[in-house]
Design a protein around this nucleic acid. Sequence first.
DNA 1: CGCCATCATGAAAGTGACATTCATTGGCAT
DNA 2: ATGCCAATGAATGTCACTTTCATGATGGCG
Lengths: 143, 143
Amino acid sequence: MKRAKKKVFADFMSQKGLKSTKQRDIILDSFLSSDRHLSIEELYLKLRSKHPNIGYATVYRTLKLFAEAGIAREMQFGDGQTRYEHVSEGEHHDHLVCTRCGHIEEFENETIEKLQDEVADSRGFLIERHRLEIYGLCANCRK
Amino acid sequence: MKRAKKKVFADFMSQKGLKSTKQRDIILDSFLSSDRHLSIEELYLKLRSKHPNIGYATVYRTLKLFAEAGIAREMQFGDGQTRYEHVSEGEHHDHLVCTRCGHIEEFENETIEKLQDEVADSRGFLIERHRLEIYGLCANCRK
DNA sequence: CGCCATCATGAAAGTGACATTCATTGGCAT
DNA sequence: ATGCCAATGAATGTCACTTTCATGATGGCG
Ligand SMILES: [Mn+2]
Ligand SMILES: [Mn+2]
Ligand SMILES: [Zn+2]
Ligand SMILES: [Zn+2]
């Protein structure tokens, strides 16, 4: 799965005539082996210790590339930072966000999706995408 | 309804020991008689012609007060601007957002709400709030 | 290989939408 | 009318990107 995404990215890059670099390899590796909802800053700081020579701008631009290539998606959870989450082809999910500890859980609910389609249909809307986020306290923080 | 919200705000202000001012009256009046999803900038510009002496900072702070008082709510639709929408006591709704013309429609769906509760329960989450936004083309823009 | 047109990098500067400061103005209880 | 304290708005600060630009790397070609 990690290997599959590396291939998707490599294909995207060569198809676009872009180059393979040491920085991009390192950033991709780190991204794929970390939390599913990482901000630019977080990934940058995570790399900083082992690779102090990688700049914030490179992390920023590389994450944008991941999104373009379809292996990442930009998300806003209202904490003031853009987060990048892993994307798998054809997969979709929504989120539960803990307002205390920041923990993010994912869920899928086919019935909700269907009801959204019905709402859109009834208004003549053509759906491109949607976002459903439930904010509250996670099981841990409720204790 | 407009009168009801003015009272809610007036009560909030006096209860907080805050003062009634000409600017706040004007801003409240303008807010209540405009689009349901207005950005600070939009409201500021709308006022600018008739009231060039009202500053951006005052509009900004007054909208925050509206939110505190419970007659407005801050919303993010991903266009880079915070929007303030009208709120009525106990009312809730979600949104359909047109990605072409920016048109925003509101809807309520009790079944979706119930399913969200079930999802949260099954994960041990205690819901504080949620957001559901459907992005796409409105009936007009599809033509 | 070695060239070199392109692309990539990162430090620094720019941007945009808030958010705060501060000197001055203005409510309003007494 | 007086004085205290909140309100105002021009200016400035902040923060998370976003872009610029001089320098360094990549990789197709001969
Ligand atoms: Mn979904
Ligand atoms: Mn809802
Ligand atoms: Zn938590
Ligand atoms: Zn539209």
